[in-house]
Nucleic acid binder design. Structure first.
Lengths: 190, 190
DNA sequence: CTGGAAACTGACCCGTCAATCAACTTCCCT
DNA sequence: AGGGAAGTTGATTGACGGGTCAGTTTCCAG
């Protein structure tokens, strides 16, 4: 029963369903039909709105990325200069960023970036933005902000991978590890 | 032109071809035909020897894992107690462990482990072995060996991911970052 | 010399899935 | 009212890829 103005609602539902499906499967081997079924529509409609499977995946990737950016901004609100780096780390492991679903989908996007130029481009943008945010946040507390930002970024990626494969690794543990390294990176020159 | 005693040679060629193909593609979307072609045989023969696609992939995964173990052993040879942790780190980024090909294939196995129970099992074994090696190596030089091993392991995984997506990241840089964190993890209590 | 095992392949079968199409329904504008 | 736009789907198509099989060649044992 068609209603007017469904497009944004359908798009949203499909994007959500994509993230859920990717997160649950942990693989890019997810069919358009599965996504559409979870979103409560036919696969034809998914194609109608997005044009193709890749576009659906890219939309989901953009969503996760922008959710993460929002999380960072929220965590950064009202935090003094010296606490900014820790706030960014908390954003990585808290809120909606570190649910099993999001982590699984995130890993899928890493894979997609290896063969899809647009996905690679999105990843590079995320990567550069996180890096510059971290450098800026580390400048007041760290002797070598750029190097520390690279290390911290790599550690965060690694913790994501491990969380995806090892359900034992809790968000709290992961966050603690990252914060410990952050403290070391900052404090070992005094 | 059939010759006797080809089986081990073919198996080896197919495993090598699998790693090369996975490493080049950066995805599990590699067909048996591609692998077989690169190995110079028909796809039917690949099925004949391995039984199926999954078996081929698992054989390749086992190969990469055992190559890595060999690398660690080699790097550890004749190194004094205090240098063991650094030697393991060097093994991760040197030799055949950190070629673009091996890193790409490695990432594929992480993906496979998310949906294939046998691959997950193999990953867990690798994971536990690396962990216990690291803990043992860190004991003489580090106040909290277990925590440090977990952190170092995650960092190494993260550096692999980044190397896979970012050709700018050289082995030397990655190794330097890992060794820096290792030094911090050891030295910050003095 | 001969029969069987090992090595090897081309052709085929069959399931799956992205993508398209031709409909049908509901809503809104004039 | 009624025509077009938006919403929606089931059925279909076409490609692709894993797996199987029947058949061919080569080698070796008895």
């Amino acid at each position: 029963m068609p209603k007017q103005g469904m497009e944004p609602i359908r798009r949203d539902a499909l994007v959500r369903a994509t993230i859920a499906e990717l997160g649950a499967a942990g693989t890019l081997d997810v069919t358009v039909s599965q996504i559409a079924r979870r979103a409560g529509v036919s696969s034809a409609l998914a194609h109608h709105y997005f044009g193709g499977k890749d576009q659906i995946f890219l939309a989901a990737m953009r969503r996760i990325l922008s959710d993460f950016v929002a999380e960072v901004r929220r965590e950064l609100k009202g935090v003094p200069r010296e606490g900014r780096a820790a706030a960014i780390v908390r954003a990585c492991f808290g809120g909606s960023s570190f649910t099993p679903e999001a982590v699984g989908a995130w890993m899928c996007f890493y894979v997609m970036a290896q063969s899809n130029p647009q996905a690679l481009r999105l990843w590079q943008i995320y990567h550069l933005r996180l890096r510059s945010n971290l450098i800026h946040a580390l400048r007041p507390v760290c002797p070598r902000p750029a190097a520390a930002a690279d290390t911290l970024g790599a550690l965060i990626d690694g913790l994501y991978i491990r969380a995806a494969l090892d359900p034992e690794l809790s968000p709290a543990q992961a966050e603690r590890q990252a914060l410990t390294v952050l403290a070391n990176l900052c404090g070992d020159r005094k």
